[in-house]
Amino acid sequence: MNLLVIYCHPNHQSLNYAFLQKALQGSGENSSVSEVQVLDLYAEWFDPVLVFHEHKRRRDMHTDPALKKYREQLLWADKIVLVYPIWWGRPPAMLLGYIDQMFASGFAYKDNGKLLPEGLLKGKSAVCVSTMKGPAHYPLFWLNNAHKMLMRRALFQFVGIRNVKFFEFGNMERPKGKQQEKLQQIYRYFKTLAR
């Protein structure tokens, strides 16, 4: 199993970075994991800004040479792991900019004349590890589960990825947020992860 871990937080001293390290530690001790690649969007200076004009059209985004490396990573991965904070009820703009560019028509899906397009990333699975300052059930009760709906339905199912696992950790800025317990949960999950 090949894991592509996409990390989206600007601070390598953050709790999100600690979750990344636990995911990598667990994966490294898992005999089912063949190889792991890490894409650190901030360290990579990934440009999340969409630019379209007469020489750069949206319909050609799936062949943009500047994004070739990232397309190859997504094709290579059996499992796509996203590690990020939830800000304003959704992933950071940096991650959304990556999604806007990478999950493009002609690469991640194609229109087929039906209500929903054909997902071109079938057979892959995804894991979302996210943290937030607010309570764990805040997105469910206050935001109608918008974060999970965005990631599961509007993104992954749209491109053919049906198997999506969520770790949505709340109260992460509180002294009694059980951060160590949750870090160990991520370590154990990736250590025993099967395809």
Rank of each mutant, 00 (worst) to 15 (best):
P175A: 12
F190R: 06
Y7I: 04
K79A: 14
I161W: 02
I86C: 07
F19P: 01
P117M: 03
K122S: 12
D40R: 14
M172L: 03
M172D: 04
E181Y: 11
Y187P: 03
A77R: 02
S130V: 07
Q179K: 15
V159C: 09
W76A: 14
H12M: 05
V33Q: 08
Q184R: 14
L116Y: 14
I86N: 02
F141G: 04
K69T: 11
F19C: 10
G97D: 01
I99A: 10
H62L: 05
N2L: 10
V38N: 06
K122A: 13
L121Y: 07
H12I: 06
F158C: 02
A194D: 06
L74P: 06
L50R: 13
L96W: 00
A104R: 03
H55I: 08
R90F: 03
R188D: 11
S125V: 07
K191H: 13
Y70F: 15
F190D: 04
M102W: 01
G28Q: 08
L121R: 05
G97N: 04
V49A: 10
N16F: 02
Q185A: 15
N144R: 14
R90M: 15
A23F: 08
Q180M: 08
G97M: 01
G89P: 00
M172F: 04
S14N: 08
S130R: 07
K165W: 00
L143D: 10
K69S: 14
A77T: 05
K79D: 03
F156P: 01
Y187F: 14
P91R: 04
A43R: 10
S34V: 09
Q73E: 12
L75K: 15
V5W: 02
F190C: 07
S32K: 09
A146N: 11
P48G: 11
P85L: 07
Q25H: 09
R153Y: 06
R188G: 02
R188P: 00
R153H: 14
K56E: 06
V164D: 01
F166S: 09
